[in-house]
Amino acid sequence: MNALNDLGLIIGISLMYAAPLIYTALGGVMTENSGVVNIGLEGMMTIGAFIGATVGYYSGNPWLAFLCAGLAGGVLALLHAVACVTFSADQVVSGIAMNFLGPGLSLFLSRVFFEGATMTKPIPLDQKMPRPLNGVFAQNSFLDLVFNQYATVYLAFLLVFIVWYILYKTKIGLRIRAVGEHPRAADTLGIDVYKVKYLAVILSGVFAGFGGAAMSLAAVSNFRATLISGQGFIALAAMIFGKWTPQGSMWACLLFGVAQGLVVYLGGTNIKVSSQLLAMIPYVLTLIILMSFVGKVTGPAANGVPYEKNKE
Protein backbone atom coordinates (compact mmCIF):
# COMPACT_ATOMS: atom_id res chain seq x y z
CA MET A 1 0.00 0.00 0.00
CA ASN A 2 2.84 2.30 0.80
CA ALA A 3 4.55 1.69 -2.53
CA LEU A 4 1.30 2.52 -4.28
CA ASN A 5 1.02 5.78 -2.39
CA ASP A 6 4.61 6.65 -3.23
CA LEU A 7 3.81 6.06 -6.88
CA GLY A 8 0.74 8.25 -6.51
CA LEU A 9 2.84 10.99 -4.98
CA ILE A 10 5.31 10.90 -7.88
CA ILE A 11 2.54 10.96 -10.49
CA GLY A 12 0.75 13.79 -8.67
CA ILE A 13 3.91 15.89 -8.50
CA SER A 14 4.63 15.18 -12.17
CA LEU A 15 1.22 16.45 -13.19
CA MET A 16 1.50 19.57 -11.05
CA TYR A 17 4.93 20.31 -12.47
CA ALA A 18 4.06 19.52 -16.07
CA ALA A 19 0.84 21.52 -16.43
CA PRO A 20 2.33 25.05 -16.65
CA LEU A 21 5.06 23.71 -18.93
CA ILE A 22 2.51 22.07 -21.25
CA TYR A 23 0.59 25.31 -21.79
CA THR A 24 3.75 27.19 -22.58
CA ALA A 25 5.20 24.46 -24.79
CA LEU A 26 1.95 24.46 -26.78
CA GLY A 27 2.48 28.18 -27.27
CA GLY A 28 5.91 27.36 -28.65
CA VAL A 29 4.42 24.73 -30.95
CA MET A 30 1.96 27.28 -32.35
CA THR A 31 4.41 30.05 -33.07
CA GLU A 32 7.26 27.96 -34.37
CA ASN A 33 5.04 25.99 -36.72
CA SER A 34 4.21 29.32 -38.33
CA GLY A 35 7.92 30.07 -38.67
CA VAL A 36 8.37 32.62 -35.88
CA VAL A 37 10.81 31.76 -33.09
CA ASN A 38 9.56 32.98 -29.73
CA ILE A 39 12.10 32.77 -26.93
CA GLY A 40 10.05 35.41 -25.13
CA LEU A 41 7.73 32.73 -23.73
CA GLU A 42 9.33 33.14 -20.30
CA GLY A 43 8.44 36.84 -20.22
CA MET A 44 4.91 36.12 -21.43
CA MET A 45 4.52 33.50 -18.71
CA THR A 46 5.68 36.02 -16.12
CA ILE A 47 3.17 38.67 -17.12
CA GLY A 48 0.47 35.99 -17.26
CA ALA A 49 1.36 34.80 -13.77
CA PHE A 50 1.25 38.35 -12.46
CA ILE A 51 -2.01 39.36 -14.14
CA GLY A 52 -3.59 36.06 -13.11
CA ALA A 53 -2.66 36.55 -9.46
CA THR A 54 -3.73 40.21 -9.48
CA VAL A 55 -7.10 39.77 -11.19
CA GLY A 56 -7.69 36.67 -9.08
CA TYR A 57 -7.01 38.57 -5.90
CA TYR A 58 -9.19 41.56 -6.72
CA SER A 59 -12.08 39.82 -8.51
CA GLY A 60 -12.19 36.56 -6.59
CA ASN A 61 -12.97 34.80 -9.87
CA PRO A 62 -10.23 32.38 -10.98
CA TRP A 63 -11.64 31.85 -14.46
CA LEU A 64 -11.75 35.56 -15.21
CA ALA A 65 -8.20 35.77 -13.87
CA PHE A 66 -7.10 32.86 -16.06
CA LEU A 67 -8.55 34.51 -19.18
CA CYS A 68 -6.99 37.87 -18.34
CA ALA A 69 -3.64 36.13 -17.89
CA GLY A 70 -3.95 34.71 -21.40
CA LEU A 71 -4.92 38.12 -22.70
CA ALA A 72 -1.88 39.73 -21.07
CA GLY A 73 0.43 37.15 -22.60
CA GLY A 74 -1.29 37.73 -25.93
CA VAL A 75 -0.72 41.49 -25.77
CA LEU A 76 2.99 40.96 -25.16
CA ALA A 77 3.06 38.47 -28.02
CA LEU A 78 1.38 41.04 -30.25
CA LEU A 79 4.40 43.30 -29.72
CA HIS A 80 6.65 40.40 -30.66
CA ALA A 81 4.58 39.83 -33.79
CA VAL A 82 4.72 43.49 -34.79
CA ALA A 83 8.50 43.46 -34.44
CA CYS A 84 9.13 40.11 -36.10
CA VAL A 85 6.40 39.80 -38.72
CA THR A 86 5.72 43.37 -39.81
CA PHE A 87 9.20 44.82 -39.32
CA SER A 88 11.22 41.63 -39.95
CA ALA A 89 13.26 42.24 -36.81
CA ASP A 90 15.61 39.58 -35.51
CA GLN A 91 13.31 37.15 -33.72
CA VAL A 92 15.81 36.19 -31.04
CA VAL A 93 16.53 39.81 -30.16
CA SER A 94 12.83 40.62 -29.94
CA GLY A 95 12.31 37.52 -27.80
CA ILE A 96 15.02 38.64 -25.41
CA ALA A 97 13.34 42.04 -25.23
CA MET A 98 10.09 40.27 -24.27
CA ASN A 99 11.93 38.45 -21.50
CA PHE A 100 12.99 41.80 -20.07
CA LEU A 101 9.66 43.47 -20.67
CA GLY A 102 7.50 40.76 -19.06
CA PRO A 103 9.11 40.70 -15.60
CA GLY A 104 9.83 44.46 -15.67
CA LEU A 105 6.22 45.31 -16.43
CA SER A 106 5.00 42.82 -13.81
CA LEU A 107 7.14 44.37 -11.09
CA PHE A 108 6.12 47.88 -12.08
CA LEU A 109 2.41 47.03 -12.07
CA SER A 110 2.77 45.07 -8.84
CA ARG A 111 4.04 48.20 -7.15
CA VAL A 112 1.07 50.14 -8.49
CA PHE A 113 -1.56 47.62 -7.39
CA PHE A 114 -0.06 46.35 -4.13
CA GLU A 115 1.16 49.46 -2.29
CA GLY A 116 4.69 49.27 -3.58
CA ALA A 117 5.18 45.56 -2.87
CA THR A 118 6.93 43.36 -5.42
CA MET A 119 4.70 40.41 -4.63
CA THR A 120 0.94 40.06 -4.79
CA LYS A 121 -1.23 39.13 -1.84
CA PRO A 122 -2.21 35.46 -1.53
CA ILE A 123 -5.59 34.35 -2.85
CA PRO A 124 -7.77 32.40 -0.38
CA LEU A 125 -8.19 28.70 -1.14
CA ASP A 126 -11.83 28.94 -2.15
CA GLN A 127 -11.09 31.63 -4.74
CA LYS A 128 -8.28 29.72 -6.41
CA MET A 129 -8.75 27.43 -9.39
CA PRO A 130 -11.22 24.71 -8.38
CA ARG A 131 -10.08 21.13 -7.78
CA PRO A 132 -12.90 19.17 -9.45
CA LEU A 133 -12.13 15.88 -7.69
CA ASN A 134 -11.25 17.30 -4.27
CA GLY A 135 -12.76 15.19 -1.50
CA VAL A 136 -13.95 12.43 -3.87
CA PHE A 137 -11.22 10.05 -2.71
CA ALA A 138 -9.82 9.54 0.79
CA GLN A 139 -7.09 12.08 1.59
CA ASN A 140 -3.62 10.90 0.58
CA SER A 141 -4.90 7.67 -0.99
CA PHE A 142 -3.42 6.70 -4.35
CA LEU A 143 -6.35 8.01 -6.38
CA ASP A 144 -6.44 11.23 -4.38
CA LEU A 145 -2.73 11.84 -4.91
CA VAL A 146 -3.04 11.30 -8.64
CA PHE A 147 -6.38 12.85 -9.50
CA ASN A 148 -6.94 15.57 -6.92
CA GLN A 149 -5.50 18.22 -9.22
CA TYR A 150 -6.47 21.74 -10.11
CA ALA A 151 -8.67 22.30 -13.14
CA THR A 152 -5.71 23.85 -14.93
CA VAL A 153 -4.03 20.44 -15.05
CA TYR A 154 -6.98 18.81 -16.83
CA LEU A 155 -7.34 21.80 -19.12
CA ALA A 156 -3.69 21.49 -20.16
CA PHE A 157 -4.31 18.01 -21.54
CA LEU A 158 -7.50 19.14 -23.22
CA LEU A 159 -5.56 21.95 -24.86
CA VAL A 160 -2.99 19.46 -26.18
CA PHE A 161 -5.79 17.69 -28.01
CA ILE A 162 -7.29 20.97 -29.27
CA VAL A 163 -3.98 22.24 -30.61
CA TRP A 164 -3.28 18.87 -32.25
CA TYR A 165 -6.70 18.96 -33.85
CA ILE A 166 -6.29 22.51 -35.11
CA LEU A 167 -2.81 21.96 -36.48
CA TYR A 168 -3.42 18.68 -38.26
CA LYS A 169 -7.15 18.44 -38.95
CA THR A 170 -8.28 21.92 -39.92
CA LYS A 171 -7.68 24.29 -42.81
CA ILE A 172 -6.19 26.98 -40.61
CA GLY A 173 -3.77 24.44 -39.15
CA LEU A 174 -2.60 23.44 -42.58
CA ARG A 175 -2.07 27.10 -43.39
CA ILE A 176 -0.05 27.68 -40.26
CA ARG A 177 2.23 24.77 -41.09
CA ALA A 178 2.48 25.79 -44.75
CA VAL A 179 3.57 29.28 -43.73
CA GLY A 180 6.20 27.79 -41.46
CA GLU A 181 7.55 25.48 -44.15
CA HIS A 182 7.50 27.66 -47.22
CA PRO A 183 5.92 31.08 -46.85
CA ARG A 184 6.41 32.09 -50.49
CA ALA A 185 4.61 29.03 -51.76
CA ALA A 186 1.80 29.69 -49.33
CA ASP A 187 1.69 33.31 -50.43
CA THR A 188 1.41 32.45 -54.11
CA LEU A 189 -1.55 30.23 -53.26
CA GLY A 190 -3.34 33.23 -51.79
CA ILE A 191 -2.70 32.69 -48.08
CA ASP A 192 -2.19 35.90 -46.13
CA VAL A 193 1.16 34.95 -44.59
CA TYR A 194 1.31 37.92 -42.23
CA LYS A 195 -2.16 37.32 -40.87
CA VAL A 196 -1.45 33.65 -40.21
CA LYS A 197 1.82 34.47 -38.46
CA TYR A 198 0.16 37.13 -36.34
CA LEU A 199 -2.51 34.67 -35.27
CA ALA A 200 0.02 31.98 -34.33
CA VAL A 201 2.31 34.33 -32.43
CA ILE A 202 -0.54 35.90 -30.46
CA LEU A 203 -1.89 32.45 -29.57
CA SER A 204 1.55 31.46 -28.33
CA GLY A 205 1.46 34.42 -25.94
CA VAL A 206 -2.05 33.50 -24.81
CA PHE A 207 -0.95 29.94 -24.03
CA ALA A 208 2.18 31.12 -22.24
CA GLY A 209 -0.03 33.47 -20.21
CA PHE A 210 -2.19 30.48 -19.27
CA GLY A 211 0.97 28.66 -18.26
CA GLY A 212 1.96 31.49 -15.96
CA ALA A 213 -1.51 31.59 -14.44
CA ALA A 214 -1.35 27.84 -13.88
CA MET A 215 1.55 28.64 -11.56
CA SER A 216 0.11 31.67 -9.76
CA LEU A 217 -3.53 30.53 -9.51
CA ALA A 218 -3.06 26.82 -8.89
CA ALA A 219 0.45 25.69 -7.96
CA VAL A 220 0.71 28.59 -5.50
CA SER A 221 -1.65 31.49 -4.85
CA ASN A 222 0.49 34.59 -5.27
CA PHE A 223 3.00 36.10 -7.66
CA ARG A 224 6.52 37.06 -6.74
CA ALA A 225 9.37 38.12 -8.98
CA THR A 226 11.03 34.72 -8.81
CA LEU A 227 7.91 32.61 -9.40
CA ILE A 228 8.68 32.15 -13.09
CA SER A 229 12.36 31.38 -13.22
CA GLY A 230 13.23 29.21 -16.16
CA GLN A 231 9.93 27.41 -16.83
CA GLY A 232 9.54 29.27 -20.14
CA PHE A 233 12.90 28.02 -21.35
CA ILE A 234 12.25 24.47 -20.17
CA ALA A 235 8.97 24.56 -22.09
CA LEU A 236 10.87 25.76 -25.14
CA ALA A 237 13.28 22.87 -24.79
CA ALA A 238 10.38 20.48 -24.32
CA MET A 239 8.87 21.71 -27.57
CA ILE A 240 12.06 21.00 -29.51
CA PHE A 241 12.39 17.69 -27.69
CA GLY A 242 8.83 16.94 -28.78
CA LYS A 243 9.71 17.63 -32.42
CA TRP A 244 7.45 20.69 -32.66
CA THR A 245 4.29 18.62 -32.18
CA PRO A 246 1.72 19.18 -29.42
CA GLN A 247 1.67 15.54 -28.31
CA GLY A 248 5.46 15.25 -28.37
CA SER A 249 5.81 18.41 -26.30
CA MET A 250 3.32 17.04 -23.81
CA TRP A 251 5.34 13.86 -23.33
CA ALA A 252 8.52 15.88 -22.93
CA CYS A 253 6.90 18.07 -20.25
CA LEU A 254 5.60 14.98 -18.48
CA LEU A 255 9.04 13.41 -18.56
CA PHE A 256 10.47 16.50 -16.94
CA GLY A 257 7.66 16.41 -14.37
CA VAL A 258 8.28 12.74 -13.57
CA ALA A 259 11.96 13.47 -13.09
CA GLN A 260 11.10 16.24 -10.62
CA GLY A 261 8.68 13.90 -8.86
CA LEU A 262 11.47 11.32 -8.54
CA VAL A 263 13.84 13.95 -7.17
CA VAL A 264 11.37 14.95 -4.48
CA TYR A 265 10.55 11.32 -3.67
CA LEU A 266 14.18 10.17 -3.50
CA GLY A 267 15.11 13.21 -1.42
CA GLY A 268 12.49 12.14 1.12
CA THR A 269 13.64 8.53 1.44
CA ASN A 270 16.49 7.21 3.50
CA ILE A 271 18.70 6.71 0.46
CA LYS A 272 21.48 9.18 1.16
CA VAL A 273 22.19 10.93 -2.10
CA SER A 274 23.34 14.52 -1.99
CA SER A 275 20.48 16.83 -2.89
CA GLN A 276 22.68 18.73 -5.36
CA LEU A 277 23.12 15.55 -7.38
CA LEU A 278 19.42 14.80 -7.16
CA ALA A 279 18.56 18.27 -8.39
CA MET A 280 20.46 17.54 -11.60
CA ILE A 281 18.38 14.49 -12.50
CA PRO A 282 15.65 16.20 -14.56
CA TYR A 283 18.17 17.98 -16.75
CA VAL A 284 20.55 15.05 -17.16
CA LEU A 285 17.69 12.69 -17.89
CA THR A 286 16.33 15.04 -20.55
CA LEU A 287 19.76 15.25 -22.19
CA ILE A 288 20.27 11.51 -22.19
CA ILE A 289 16.89 10.75 -23.67
CA LEU A 290 17.30 13.49 -26.22
CA MET A 291 20.62 12.05 -27.33
CA SER A 292 19.75 8.38 -27.31
CA PHE A 293 16.12 7.96 -28.32
CA VAL A 294 14.78 10.94 -30.09
CA GLY A 295 17.30 11.14 -32.89
CA LYS A 296 17.53 13.92 -35.39
CA VAL A 297 14.95 16.61 -34.90
CA THR A 298 14.00 18.93 -37.71
CA GLY A 299 11.82 21.94 -37.18
CA PRO A 300 9.71 23.80 -39.70
CA ALA A 301 11.89 24.69 -42.69
CA ALA A 302 11.33 28.44 -42.62
CA ASN A 303 11.47 28.73 -38.82
CA GLY A 304 13.16 31.93 -37.68
CA VAL A 305 13.37 33.47 -41.14
CA PRO A 306 11.44 36.71 -41.49
CA TYR A 307 9.17 36.73 -44.53
CA GLU A 308 9.22 39.77 -46.76
CA LYS A 309 6.63 39.78 -49.45
CA ASN A 310 8.38 41.86 -52.05
CA LYS A 311 11.90 40.56 -51.69
CA GLU A 312 13.43 37.61 -53.43
Partner: peptide, 15 residues
Protein backbone atom coordinates in the same frame (compact mmCIF):
# COMPACT_ATOMS: atom_id res chain seq x y z
CA UNK B 1 18.33 23.16 -3.98
CA UNK B 2 16.56 26.35 -5.02
CA UNK B 3 15.24 29.56 -3.53
CA UNK B 4 12.75 30.16 -6.33
CA UNK B 5 11.07 26.89 -7.35
CA UNK B 6 7.73 27.20 -5.55
CA UNK B 7 6.38 24.05 -7.21
CA UNK B 8 9.21 22.03 -5.74
CA UNK B 9 8.54 23.46 -2.30
CA UNK B 10 4.95 22.37 -2.63
CA UNK B 11 5.93 18.92 -3.84
CA UNK B 12 8.36 18.40 -0.96
CA UNK B 13 5.85 19.60 1.62
CA UNK B 14 3.18 17.32 0.14
CA UNK B 15 5.59 14.43 0.35
Amino acid sequence: ESFTDAAKGKAIANS
